[in-house]
């Protein structure tokens, strides 16, 4: 009688009405894993969550700046001093005069005086 009770107890402990077969178990594990992975993705650290939009915005503005410089360089050549077309005609003249040597300047003076003399003669006639 005692052996019978022990056998029965052993049977009850080792068997279950809740068995799932290997195929069902594999399929269930895949569903469970998908749930866990989805939750882990949602639970990404809050710090990087906050940083991501800022980082993305910074990267985007950086790329835009580089592109705009590239486009300007393609159109105008590499950036040097202030482009001449932004100066008025008077400023351009001043700039041109200041870049001349003393010899060049005296030659221009002489030329101007000759022109003025010729102009005076013709007006007298």
């Amino acid at each position: 009688m005692k052996d019978n009770m022990e056998e029965r107890e052993d049977y009850l402990k080792r068997h279950s009405p809740y068995q799932v077969n290997g195929e069902q178990w594999e399929a269930m594990q895949q569903r469970l894993k998908a749930g866990v992975l989805a939750d882990r993705a949602q639970q990404a650290p809050p710090r990087s969550k906050r940083l991501m939009p800022r980082l993305a915005a910074g990267m985007a503005s950086g790329i835009a700046l580089i592109l705009s410089i590239y486009v300007v360089q393609q159109q105008n050549g590499p950036h040097t001093a202030t482009p001449a077309r932004q100066l008025s005609p008077e400023q351009q003249l001043d700039k041109a005069i200041s870049s001349l040597s003393d010899a060049e300047l005296s030659w221009i003076h002489q030329l101007n005086e000759e022109e003025l003399a010729e102009a005076g003669e013709s007006s007298e006639n």
Binding site: R31, L32, G35, V36, D39, R40, Q43
Partner: peptide, 10 residues
């Protein structure tokens, strides 16, 4: 079991 595993991983 799904809720349990989610809690475990968290």
């Amino acid at each position: 079991l799904q809720d349990t595993l989610i809690d475990v991983f968290r």
